[in-house]
Design a protein around this nucleic acid. Structure first.
Lengths: 255, 255
DNA sequence: CGAGGCGTTGACACCCATCAACATGGGTGG
DNA sequence: CCACCCATGTTGATGGGTGTCAACGCCTCG
C-alpha cells in the first residue's frame, strides 16, 4: 500500500484507534480503513463552527483531540446542546445516510480532527468493513447516550441532571484515558451546562452550589473537583451500563 | 434458495419492505436478507412486555403491525418513554453491538413482528449487506428522532412539545401509509403522552384543551382530529427535515 | 485602566406537579 | 338489562421548582 500517508496518521492509528475501539475489537480492519481514508488532518480554534445547521455535509470527522458540541438554535433564541463529542468520537457519521446537518457543530477547545471523505454506503460496506463496523458501533452508542439524556430531561430534576451529566463525562474521559485523579478540566461554561441540561445558566449556578454543599463536587472556572463520587452517583442514580464500555470479550477473535 | 419460508413472509417482503425502505433504495439485497433471516412471526397482545430492562437480547425485531413503546422506569417510580416504534421500525437493532437492553419494550396494541436471529456483526457485514444498510439507516434515523426529542424536552414548553410530537407521529403514520385524512387513531393514553413529553398526565389534559381552544386539534379517547395542521405546526415550530423521509434519489441505481 | 465575559445573589413570577374530588365510560357479572 | 367497577379523563386549589430580571463582583485581556 503505497498511498501517501499523512504525517501523524501513524500515531493516530496506533494510539487513537485503540481508544475508538478499545471496546470494539475489530482493530485491524479499522486501522487499515482509516489509513486508506484519512487523508486530511484539520485543526480548528476554540469556538469555531465546523458545520452549521442546514449545511450539506460530505465528510465524516474523527476527533483526535478537543471537545465539540452539537447544538440547535431555536426560533425564540434558545439553544439546546444534544451531545458533547470527545476525542475518539466520530462527527457526522450519518453523512452517508443523510444529506444535511440539522445541528451546529462547534468546538469548545482547540481541536484537531481527521477528515474522512464519506464513501457512499455501498462502497463502505463493501470495501471498508472495519470502518463500517466502527461507525455502526459509534452510532449505536450515541443513540444510547441520547436515550439516557431523554430520560434525564424528562424525569430528573436539576440536581439529578447535573450530577448525571458529570458522571457521564467523567466516565467517558476515563475511558479514553484523558482523566485520572479527582480533578477534571471541563471546557464548558455554565451556559453550556444549561443548554445541555435544559436549564437556565443561573439555575446551573444554584445547582452547582447545592452539589458543593452536599459535598459531592466543587466547580470553579472549568475545573471540577470530584470530592465524593459515591455521593454524586447516588444523587444521579447513575448506572454506567448505557455507556457500553464493557469490552465485548465474546467477540474477540481467537489468536 | 429452497429455505422454508414462513407463511406471510412473502407479503412482508412485498409490502413491508417498501415501507421499511421506501426512503432507502436498497430493496433487493434487503428483501433477500429478510427472506433468509426472518424465520419467525410472533404476535403479542396489547400491553405485553416484549423485553424488560436488563434482559439479554439475541434478536432483532421488525414490526409488521402495531405500536411499541420503549421506556425506562426510574427508582422514584417515574417512567420515561424514549420512543414510539411503528410498523416498519426495527426493535433492538443494536443487539449485534450490545448485550442487554436498558429499556422495556411494551406493546400498545396487538402487534405482529418478524423476528430476526441477530447475526454477529462480521457476518452481517459480510453476508447481509442489505440488512446492514437498512439497520444503519434505521439507527441513524432513530438517533435523529432522539436528538429532536432532546431539543423538545430541553427547550420547548408543554404546548410546543405536545404539538411537536403530534406532528411527528402524524408524519410518520403518513409515511407508512397508515393514515390519511384528518383523524388519527392513536393508541396512547394521556399518561403515555405525559411520559413521552416529561409532563404529568394532568398537565397533558390541560395542554390538549389548550390546543383545542386554539383550534389546532381535538383529542378524545384515542382519536385525534387534526383541525388546523398549519396552526399545529406553527405552535410546534415543526420542521420535518429530521425525519429524513425525503427519498435519496441520488442513490437510486440506474436501471 | 477600562471593557467585556462570566459567575453570583436576591426578588419575584410563572409553569407545571401534586393532591383530592369528581365525571365519564367501557367491561363484567349478576 | 342493570349494577358495579376500574381505568381514564377532568377540574380546581395549592405549592414547589425553575425562569427571568436586575444588580453586582471577579477575572482576563487589551
Amino acid at each position: 500500500m503505497d498511498m501517501p500517508v499523512l504525517p501523524g496518521a501513524d500515531e493516530m492509528t496506533a494510539d487513537l484507534v485503540k481508544k475508538v475501539s478499545g471496546y470494539f475489537p475489530m482493530l485491524d480492519p479499522l486501522r487499515k480503513d482509516l489509513m486508506e481514508l484519512t487523508r486530511e488532518r484539520m485543526s480548528f480554534p476554540a469556538g469555531h463552527t465546523i458545520i452549521s445547521a442546514g449545511d450539506k455535509y460530505d465528510s465524516i470527522y474523527l476527533i483526535e483531540d478537543g471537545w465539540v458540541v452539537r447544538s440547535r438554535f431555536l426560533p425564540g433564541g434558545g439553544r439546546q446542546i444534544v451531545n458533547v463529542a470527545l476525542p475518539g468520537d466520530f462527527l457526522c457519521f450519518n453523512a452517508m445516510m443523510f444529506r444535511m446537518s440539522e445541528f451546529d457543530l462547534t468546538t469548545r477547545t482547540n481541536c484537531s480532527v481527521f477528515r474522512l471523505k464519506a464513501p457512499d454506503i455501498d462502497r463502505l460496506l463493501e470495501d471498508h468493513k472495519g470502518l463500517a463496523a466502527a461507525l455502526m458501533w459509534a452510532n449505536a452508542q450515541e443513540e444510547s447516550l441520547l436515550a439516557e439524556r431523554v430520560v434525564s430531561l424528562g424525569r430528573r430534576d436539576a440536581l439529578e441532571r447535573l450530577a448525571h451529566v458529570i458522571c457521564e463525562i467523567a466516565s467517558r474521559l476515563e475511558m479514553i484515558e484523558r482523566h485520572s485523579g479527582d480533578v477534571l478540566t471541563i471546557p464548558l461554561i455554565q451556559e453550556d451546562f444549561a443548554d445541555i441540561l435544559g436549564l437556565s445558566s443561573i439555575h446551573v449556578t444554584r445547582t452547582f452550589r447545592k452539589l458543593s454543599e452536599l459535598g459531592a463536587v466543587d466547580y470553579r472556572s472549568g475545573r471540577l473537583r470530584l470530592n465524593r463520587v459515591d455521593i454524586l452517583r447516588r444523587i444521579a442514580g447513575f448506572e454506567s451500563d448505557y455507556l457500553h464500555f464493557t469490552q465485548r470479550t465474546d467477540r474477540i477473535p481467537a489468536p
